[in-house]
């Protein structure tokens, strides 16, 4: 399933393990996962519940620290980074779409999208222009000043995608982005991902458990019991 022949690798993991401790019980969520993801690839990580797919995404997205192994993004070994450096790396290089959208309820759609750009130190004109453009590109041109509570799930997820893409990240991570959406809204979201992947050459790593999502992605990585399925 994995093709290592292409040289333009954006993410590489080497023998990544993640062990959780629940009281005295040791749970091995990942048991040594090694893979490479190419620049511009749209990859789905699939597997049954408890297979370790979300845990693996968190390692790739620097939201968690592996128990052992390394995650290399854009040729940078992230295991050598401090927490502050990781935060800064996430701000400039990575984008996230969460299952429950994770928008800040006190901010309007455009403010949610502006936030990472503001943090990057962009001028007001720059961040407002960029945020408007990306919201328009996800089809929310008439909802820029709307608050999350006034939007449907699909619309909120599109704001979340706009927030994740506004700063043009090297990799977009999406953790079950359609889990809370009906099939129509899910299709719209997946088509958006596909559009950004094709038109902007955006690398996307998405966790999903829906088999029908496979038709939108370039490659499927399957996990079972914390290891790659061969």
């Amino acid at each position: 399933m994995e093709n290592n022949t292409k040289s333009d690798v954006i993410i590489e993991t080497k023998d990544v393990t993640r062990i959780f401790y629940m009281g005295e019980v040791e749970v091995k969520a990942l048991r040594g996962v090694s893979l490479k993801i190419k620049r511009g690839e749209f990859v789905a990580i699939m597997g049954s519940s408890g297979s370790g797919k979300s845990t693996f995404l968190n390692q790739l997205g620097l939201l968690d620290i592996p128990t052992s192994g390394t995650v290399i993004i854009n040729s940078i070994d992230t295991s050598k980074m401090s927490e502050k450096e990781k935060g800064n790396f996430r701000l400039h290089n990575l984008g996230y779409v969460f299952q429950d959208y994770a928008l800040l309820p006190e901010l309007s759609a455009i403010e949610n999208v502006c936030l990472p750009l503001m943090m990057q130190g962009k001028s007001k004109e720059e961040y407002q222009r960029a945020a408007s453009a990306v919201l328009i590109s996800v089809g929310l041109e008439d909802r820029l000043d709307q608050f999350p509570s006034k939007m449907s799930g699909g619309q909120q997820q599109r704001v979340s995608i706009a927030r994740a893409l506004a700063h043009k990240p090297r990799v977009l991570f999406a953790d079950e982005p359609c889990a809370n959406l009906d099939s129509l809204a899910s299709k719209q979201i997946l088509e958006l991902f596909r559009k950004f992947n094709k038109e902007e050459d955006q690398t996307i790593v998405m966790v999903t458990h829906e088999e029908w999502h496979m038709e939108y992605v370039d490659r499927v990585i399957r996990l079972k019991d914390g290891v790659l399925e061969s």
């Binding site: 502050k84 996430r90 990472p116």
Partner: peptide, 16 residues
């Protein structure tokens, strides 16, 4: 708590 987590995840500095 969760909002703080999301802010941190998208790269908002802890000091901010």
């Amino acid at each position: 708590k969760r909002q703080i987590g999301v802010q941190k995840a998208i790269g908002i500095d802890q000091k901010v």
